[in-house]
């Protein structure tokens, strides 16, 4: 059996190779669903912005179906939505995506997961990427979500909940990521 290949850091020099225009906009004009923006800042253990991070997001479409062969649910595929986005952080550690609010997807057994987005974070200083999830404030299904239930500490659980930003043109959710220290984001081993 071949041995698994180890992870190494993305380093500081990935931008030309990995980032391209259009990767932060997951929606097309024909995409079905409620348009939203997601934005936030990535900070380190000293509270300083992480200016050379890359975030990737993966989500279901508005009906709660992934554009992937392993998703065999009887729900419509949206030909105008794949569900993948990638963003670099800027000089202030800020990132932003424009997407749609995902539908709910099944969990293990008979459970239902609250609408959420998988977030993967890469940066210099991370020898292995980090995985977290973004949930939406005010979503009733959050109370019964089996993954949120894995996080017993209320303050820690709040790091996974994106909060609405007032006064924006399209509904915008704020999702900051703290790598280390006070308010450290919950990260998952998957």
């Amino acid at each position: 059996m071949p041995g698994l290949t180890s992870s190494q850091t993305v380093g500081p020099f990935f931008h030309e190779a990995l980032l391209r225009d259009g990767q932060t906009t997951l929606v097309k004009p024909a995409t079905q669903g409620v348009r939203i923006a997601i934005e936030g800042i990535v900070t380190d253990g000293a509270g300083a912005p992480v200016t050379d991070a890359m975030l990737e997001i993966w989500q279901a479409n508005g009906a709660g179906r992934y554009d992937h062969p392993a998703d065999t649910q009887d729900k419509p595929i949206d030909p105008a939505f794949h569900g993948f986005g990638r963003a670099g952080t800027d000089k202030t550690g800020h990132y932003r995506f424009e997407t749609i609010r995902p539908g709910a997807v099944p969990g293990r057994g008979n459970s239902l997961q609250a609408p959420h987005i998988a977030v993967t974070l890469f940066t210099r200083g991370l020898l292995l990427h980090l995985t977290t999830r973004l949930y939406f404030a005010g979503e009733p299904l959050n109370d019964t979500d089996p993954v949120l239930a894995l996080v017993p500490d209320e303050a820690a659980r709040r790091t996974l909940i994106a909060t609405p930003v007032a006064g924006t043109a399209i509904p915008t959710y704020r999702f900051d990521i703290r790598l280390q220290g006070d308010g450290e984001t919950v990260f998952f081993e998957i």
């Binding site: 997807v105 099944p106 959420h116 995985t131 999830r133 996080v151 280390q180 919950v186 081993e189």
Partner: peptide, 18 residues
């Protein structure tokens, strides 16, 4: 890694469709 590695243990997430 000193200021960027998480200080808390990761929470094991049993894989789902996501």
């Amino acid at each position: 890694t000193i200021l960027r590695a998480p200080s808390r243990p990761l929470i094991r997430l049993p894989q789902t469709l996501t």
